[in-house]
Design a protein around this nucleic acid. Structure first.
Length: 467
RNA sequence: GUCCCCAUCGUCUAGCCUGGCCUAGGAUACCGGCCUUUCACGCCGGCGACAGGGGUUCAAAUCCCCUUGGGGACGCCA
């Protein structure tokens, strides 16, 4: 049995978005699962809209997601001669012909057809004229069979059939001489020996057109698997209107690649009731037969939930490098990664994104604490001077600076003052963090460190005394 | 409009192929409780779906047909 070869073939006309990423992921997983090869191909035949900037972004996004390719990236723009060669063959064999109809003419015919309630398609005016090359601009069209039907077994959708009468003679070579998508895909998928074409189901309508060309060129037809679309909350194909879309945007918002992959894979694919999958597990368990037929709605909350899961379950020391950029974005510098990891330990149960984590831990990184007005008014009152002074004294001389010892200090102060923990902890929290919400107070004290804790408590006392 | 595809909680889904174990399971979101020094986490509980109608069958979420609804494609874009 020949080994399986799949591909991802984006057009560099935009950033890699969630839908494309999922298609790439399915394709990649299927190749990995079957011990096959995953090929990356950049479909940049549309010179007007293709941009290097997008190609770079797509490659970066794939790398970030961990979707590595075995061959490529191949660029269609570099394979022009190959396409023209096949077009000539088609022309010679009478399977294609030159068409001199103008754009305006075609536009008008489309409108008329629409008016008559028909599917707008080329009427075949030049089909049997056998026109030779001339100075007039022309395109080359593929001569689609007029009768019969073209069908294929889609690995996801099942049997799909089109009447050939539905297909018109599509353009395979533009006036400017460049080849078009449906032809280049066929040649590339054949040249690159693809066994499985896994792509978005917006390509279902292209499939019969490609199959007739595979046949005309005498090429082997690959298997097809059309994965359903991802919709926005309005049930419409995911697009710019739906807000954050591109993979890089999620990276910059503080998502972990594992979380994005895990979310994407579970949208349209399942393995019983399991929700959390490691990459190795996915490679082991992924199969096209478990991909659903229907479109899925993108649900940001569930992706956040997965992200928080992965944040909680990643070692803080590993998380540190991922968090650093977000801390820097807030304008702080952190040199000591070990220390940062201890801070992250206290924050990661609470954050849905790395960005959130950095913001919630801001008091760890900044020098001067600004009090939240309400919090200060409520908690930094005369009553706290006494316990604060007691705390200061004990903390200054505390032998081992660990959470247990710090807790013991509090217990002692509570005993001496007869106050309840809440009465002391909240004011301390405000003194140290500026607000009323933070990780556990003993961990906070531990992480902030003796010098800065003492400094902040002193400042709080001064604040109270100065009214 | 024409062709193609799709249809289980708000959302992602299990179950469907190979009818009975489905009083339809899980996850997320939401609501409530417990835990608790705050907020979270965690744990426990609740809410909530087989689009409708016909068949076939002793029996249908599961098989067949129709209707309805939704989406996609109809480019010298990919």
């Amino acid at each position: 049995m020949t080994s399986i070869r799949t591909r991802f073939a984006p057009a560099p006309t935009g950033y890699l978005h969630l839908g494309g990423a999922r298609t790439a992921l399915f394709s990649w997983l299927y190749a990995k699962h079957t011990n096959g090869k995953f090929i990356l191909r950049i479909e940049d035949t549309d010179r007007e809209r293709s941009k290097d900037e997008y190609t770079d972004a797509i490659l970066k996004s794939m790398e970030w997601l961990g979707l590595d390719w075995d061959e490529g990236p191949f660029y269609q723009s570099e394979r022009n001669d190959r396409y023209l060669e096949e077009i000539d063959k088609l022309l010679e064999a009478g399977d294609a012909y030159r068409c001199f109809c103008t754009v305006e003419e075609l536009e008008q015919k489309r409108k008329d057809a629409q008016k008559r309630g028909e599917k707008p398609k080329y009427d075949g005016k030049c089909r049997d004229l056998n026109l030779a090359e001339s100075k007039e601009p022309f395109v080359v069209r593929f001569k689609t069979p007029k009768t019969g039907a073209t069908q294929f077994i889609d690995l996801i959708k099942g049997k799909i059939s089109f009447d050939n009468s539905e297909l018109d003679d599509l353009i395979i070579r533009r006036t400017n001489g460049s080849p078009t998508y449906n032809l280049t895909v066929v040649i590339d998928d054949s040249d690159m020996k693809m066994t499985h074409v896994i792509r978005g189901d917006d390509h279902i309508n292209n499939t019969p057109r490609q199959i007739v060309m595979f046949k005309a060129l005498g090429l082997e037809i690959p298997k097809f698997a059309h994965v359903p679309m991802i919709f926005g909350a309005d049930q419409k194909k995911l697009s710019k209107r739906h807000g954050a879309l591109s993979v890089t945007e999620y990276r910059d918002a503080g998502f972990l690649p594992n979380a994005v992959v895990n979310y994407l894979v579970r949208l349209g694919w399942s393995y019983g009731d399991q929700e959390i999958f490691s990459t190795d597990e996915l490679i082991d368990k992924f199969d096209i037969v478990n991909v659903g037929k229907s479109a899925g709605v993108f649900n940001p909350e569930k992706m956040e939930w997965l992200n928080s899961h992965y944040i909680k379950n990643t070692d803080s020391i590993n998380l540190a490098s991922n968090v650093l950029p977000f801390i820097e974005e807030l304008g702080y510098k952190v040199e000591n990664k070990e220390w940062l990891a201890t801070a992250i330990d206290t924050l990661k149960e609470r954050a849905k994104t790395l960005k959130e984590l950095a913001v919630q831990g801001e008091f760890y990184f900044k020098d001067d604490i600004d009090y939240d007005e309400k919090a200060a008014k409520k908690f930094l009152t005369e009553d706290v001077i006494k316990p604060f002074e007691l705390l200061l004294e004990s903390l200054k001389s505390l032998k081992s600076w660990d959470e247990e010892a710090i807790e013991a200090v509090f217990t002692k102060v509570l005993d001496d003052t007869g106050l309840k923990l809440g009465k002391v902890a909240q004011p301390v929290r405000v003194a140290l963090t500026g607000g009323t919400v933070s990780p556990g107070i003993f961990e906070v004290i531990h992480v902030i460190g003796r010098e800065r804790v003492i400094d902040r408590i002193k400042k709080a006392i001064e604040y109270v005394e100065s009214g």
